[in-house]
């Protein structure tokens, strides 16, 4: 249950590099102001493993394997508002740069034929989630309510976006805050 008056927020990283989370932390002392308005559910910061009912879900990274799909669906089921944060969540980003390659050929090259490998083998532990043949942006798997582009979006962009949203305004990123790089 959310503390009275506070919005409950969950975040996670799927096929991302945690750069967007680093950028979120880059809001620095503004985190204190944020924490007056929100409390965190599942996020890498709290280490809660499953997402409960939330007001806002923020997802970094696209969808590259079966586990990503599951986690994304869990977020969509529990979060009233779902935000795709960063280039990978919005378009697939860097991991999607493998999309024009055959997945089998990719695994072969990385684990078997790459020069310098000795006794390579393609990982097949049943605990490992199976990769998808292509990397997808979030909105190709579930409905996404908002998008924040950027690799990563700047702390100022994330701050502006969240403060607009929390104040009940339509989030607007103007010049210098919408960035694709």
């Amino acid at each position: 249950m959310a503390e009275a008056g506070k919005l409950r927020v969950a975040t996670t990283s799927l096929a991302g590099c945690f750069g967007c989370h680093m950028s979120l932390l880059d809001i620095d002392e503004r985190l204190f102001a944020l924490l007056e308005k929100v409390e965190f559910d599942r996020t890498p910061l709290t280490d809660i493993k499953h997402c409960g009912p939330c007001d806002i879900g923020i997802i970094e990274g696209g969808v590259c394997n079966a586990e990503n799909v599951e986690v994304l669906r869990e977020f969509r089921k529990n979060c009233k508002i779902l935000i795709a944060m960063g280039a990978c969540a919005v378009t697939g980003g860097l991991p999607a740069q493998r999309n024009h390659l055959d997945l089998g050929a990719c695994l072969q090259e990385v684990y078997l034929t790459e020069p310098g490998l000795v006794n390579g083998q393609i990982p097949n532990d049943p605990e490992l989630p199976l990769p998808l043949d292509q990397v997808h942006p979030l909105h190709e798997v579930v409905k996404v309510d908002y998008f924040i582009p950027g690799c990563p979006p700047s702390a100022d962009a994330i701050w502006k976006f969240l403060t607009d949203l929390i104040a009940g305004r339509t989030p607007r990123l103007g010049h210098g805050l919408i960035e694709y790089d």
């Binding site: 378009t91 999309n99 024009h100 942006p137 582009p149 919408i178 694709y180």
Partner: peptide, 14 residues
Amino acid sequence: YDLGVMTAGFRHFF
């Protein structure tokens, strides 16, 4: 940036 394009909109061809 200037038009405020926030999302892909279409499946990219790759």
